[in-house]
Design a protein around this nucleic acid. Structure first.
Lengths: 342, 342
DNA sequence: TTGAAAGCGCTAACAG
DNA sequence: CTGTTAGCGCTTTCAA
């Protein structure tokens, strides 16, 4: 029942190759012929068959997406928004690549080959996954989000994590804070490494010494933030401001402060990271560092497209890394340091 | 460089059709021949070409997934876990269908046709989306999660929402609660309709009258729960227990109670719905109703597979609806009603 | 039990 | 500017 190119050719009284050319906007087709073909295609509700196109050896226009921590990320939805937009603009479709290996014989690269996947988008925190090495080896173009993987056809998109935290420290300093703590995220992850680095740079910028007891936390979760804050509040000389690696941990931290009877930002200021929905809903509303998730998604697909279509090696290592700026979102969880604490 | 069926045939000294049959486990091939073919296929790292398979007119083994509210759902990750498992078991791949219409000419069904999608999985809250009618019309098999759509090749998977809330009311009643309120979710959604119905049934079961002022809230968000609880606490005769439509709204409700200086569960008991991660992390840890998200995902794919492979009309309306049981998760936010309040 | 051949829908030489 | 033809990789009659 579905019309194909031959049906159109017959109805239009031209050859299939002419139809193909008309449909693909070849310049060599007579304007009238093209219009006629296009009109008939519409009438017949013609839809090109992607499988046939892929088979004939050209592009499959298929990208794969591989998620490690993936969807648990509270802002994956916004990432996807940007990915989606870029996908449409470039004409790609996205296929989901399972992270659940059923049996050791499963291979990401083989899966991609079978489905004619032209490039893969990977997202997550763990870079320990073996598949990544496999990807690089296979020369399959790939773009990682927040993951530091190298390879000739591998790109990366991330936020300017270090700069963001560094700036946060600066802003707290400007508010009079001198005892600034950092609630760290999962050790070993790329973003955590940079955020911690940014924290140190921020302290340095203002001649503040780093105190080991002011660096706590070991995960991006709410629970980690909660416990971290408890430890901070048990200190003899407690911090007046806390920069957190994530909104979730900041929320946990605020919870701990509230239980302790401390007011935020009256007694202690708190800064988050990400700007998830709950940041706005929290009491007090969380001051945080917004990542441009849609922008990252969009940039990732655009970069992947370039990696696929350009000559391998035509862009430099640096040229395959995209670092997006973050945005300081001032809400209610930060305030001036109490004067007694200065 | 990628080996194809002809390469195998050549290397094995047999015909391509024999190779095809061996690869597809036709019984008519000689055991020795089959072994030889399989061995060579492995040596050559042969991977079947999905496009060619789809083209030759058989199954494409491709499912589409369409998300409305989709990924914003905090537990979409667990849903996906179940989907993933079923996908592998049945041999399907999943392609992401954009919800972002670029221009009015985009059509979900056409997209599916182009990509040879055999069936679609849809998830979300809004059933107002026009594409759904289009799906039913096109006779494209589809399974909806938490969405009440009907059609001859359309199925649905959901939790037993009504029963879950009804049971929650019963449990609160058993704890001595008589003034039980309900924090409702987004009006007009399928799950909300059933949860509210369950609440009423629960009250009826125990001869409790429904008080209009005890039904508040209008969304599944934390903000909605927060405001709802504020209204509840402003009442002259405030409830001693609150059943919430979601964990998020329950968390918001607890926040409001805490701000008001009320203890949970000492002064007021709170029940959530979903069992998201934050439920466990909350203080007090939230007593809630767990939905079997992986189970729903798995069931959805399995049902879709049946809808695709079985004769249309071979299963009854009721047979196309799968309702999964929920589980009561007792944590710390519920306690006996204060005796004075009985 | 095996093989030859046709053809799925499309694109791309090449010839006219 | 248009048409003829070959062929992408695979499955499936049909005949041997």
């Amino acid at each position: 029942m579905a019309a194909n190119i031959r049906d159109i050719a017959r109805a239009a009284g031209v050859s299939v190759s002419t139809v193909s050319k008309a449909l693909n906007e070849y310049p060599s087709v007579n304007a009238e012929t093209r219009e006629k073909v296009l009109r008939i295609a519409r009438e017949l509700r013609y839809e090109p068959n992607a499988a046939a196109r892929a088979l004939v050896g050209q592009r499959s226009m298929t990208l794969g997406v591989f998620l490690t921590t993936g969807l648990a990320h509270p802002f994956f939805a916004s990432l996807l928004g940007g990915i989606d937009r870029a996908l449409r603009e470039k004409g790609y479709d996205l296929i989901y690549l399972s992270q659940a290996r059923l049996g050791p014989e499963y291979s990401l690269v083989r899966h991609c080959r079978t489905r004619n996947v032209e490039g893969v988008l990977a997202f997550g925190l763990q870079d320990t996954d073996l598949s990544f090495a496999e990807l690089a080896e296979a020369e399959l173009p790939a773009v990682f989000i927040d993951l530091d993987i190298k390879g000739s056809r591998i790109g990366m998109v991330t936020s300017d994590n270090a700069q963001a935290i560094r700036e946060a420290v600066g802003r707290l300093h400007a508010l009079g804070h001198r005892r600034i703590a950092y609630v760290a995220g999962l050790a070993g992850t790329y973003v955590e490494k940079l955020r911690k680095r940014g924290f140190r740079q921020g302290l340095e910028d203002h001649g503040l010494a780093e105190r080991p007891e002011y660096v706590v936390g070991d995960d991006f979760t709410q629970a980690s933030g909660y416990e971290a804050m408890q430890r901070l509040l048990a200190l003899v000389e407690r911090p007046t401001a806390v920069v957190c690696c994530s909104d979730l941990s900041a929320l946990g931290a605020m919870q701990a402060a509230a239980e302790r009877g401390l007011s935020v930002p009256g007694d202690i200021s708190v800064v988050g990271f990400d700007d998830i929905e709950a940041a706005r809903a929290g009491r007090p509303a969380l001051t945080t560092i917004r990542q441009d998730m849609p922008g990252m998604g969009y940039a990732a697909v655009a970069l992947l497209d370039r990696l696929i279509t350009e000559e391998p090696g035509s862009r430099s290592e640096a040229d395959r890394r995209i670092v997006l700026p973050t945005e300081w979102v001032s809400r209610d969880s930060c305030g001036p340091a109490a004067t007694a604490d200065r």
